Computed example of a mutant assay.
Amino acid sequence: MSDRPVRRPRGVMPSSLFPDEKEIGRLVLGDRASAWPGVAGVWEKAGLPRIDPLTGGRYWPAVERFLDSRYGMAEPPSGAADAPENPNYDQHWKKRWRRDR
C-alpha cells in the first residue's frame, strides 16, 4: 500500500456523470431544489450545459465548471461567449453607412 494520501474528489458528487434534473437541483440548491427548473432555465442562457438528449441528463463536470466560472473560481467555459462571432460585422455596417448617406 502506498504512503501517499488518497485524493478526495472536490465538491459534491452525483450518482453518475449525467444526473437527472432532480438530483442536480438537490446538489446545487439543497433544500430549495424545487426552484431548480427556473434557475436552470435562466442559467442555460448564460452557458449552463443543456440536457443531453441521449442520456437525459446534464454532464456533471461541465455543470461544475459552469458554476465555478460563474462564481469566480475558474476560467469561463469556451462556449459561453456573449454573442456569436460574425466575421463580416464591420463590412455589414460599412455598407449600411454608405447606403444611408
Rank of each mutant, 00 (worst) to 15 (best):
R50G: 13
R4I: 02
G57P: 11
A40C: 11
F66T: 04
P14W: 13
P37M: 04
P76C: 03
R65W: 13
V63C: 03
L48E: 07
I24L: 14
S34E: 06
G57H: 02
F18S: 04
A81W: 09
M1T: 13
P19H: 03
H92V: 07
R26K: 14
V12G: 08
K45F: 01
S69Q: 12
W97E: 13
S34N: 12
I51G: 10
G30E: 08
V28H: 09
E23F: 05
D31W: 02
K95P: 01
R70C: 00
V39T: 01
S78H: 08
S78M: 08
H92K: 01
G11R: 14
K45W: 00
Y89D: 06
A35C: 00
L54D: 13
L27E: 12
L54N: 06
G72S: 00
Q91W: 02
V39D: 06
R7W: 03
V6M: 11
Y71G: 00
P9N: 15
G41P: 02
P37F: 03
S69M: 00
M1N: 03
P9K: 11
A62M: 13
E64K: 14
Q91N: 10
R7Y: 11
R99I: 01
S16F: 10
M13K: 05
F18P: 02
L29K: 07
P76Y: 01
V42M: 07
A46S: 07
S16D: 08
R58I: 09
A40E: 00
L54Q: 15
P76K: 07
R99N: 13
N86K: 01
R32C: 01
M73D: 08
D31Y: 02
V28L: 08
R101C: 01
M73P: 01
S69E: 10
P87F: 00
T55Q: 12
D90M: 03
E75I: 03
K94Q: 08
A62G: 15
F66N: 09
D31R: 10
D20I: 06
H92F: 10
P84H: 00
R8A: 14
E23C: 05
G47C: 04
Y59R: 08
M1P: 15
P9L: 15
D68C: 11
I24E: 09
P84M: 07
G25N: 15
G47H: 11
I24N: 09
W93M: 10
L67V: 05
G72H: 05
Q91Y: 01
I24K: 02
L29R: 13
P61V: 09
P9S: 11
R7Q: 14
V12H: 09
G25F: 05
A33N: 02
A83Q: 09
D100R: 09
R4T: 06
T55W: 06
Y71W: 08
E64A: 13
P49E: 00
P53M: 09
E23G: 07
V39I: 07
R101M: 13
D100M: 02
E21T: 15
V12C: 02
R7M: 10
V42H: 06
G30D: 11
A62K: 15
G47I: 06
G47T: 09
D68T: 02
L27Y: 14
G79F: 13
W97G: 03
K94I: 04
Y89V: 02
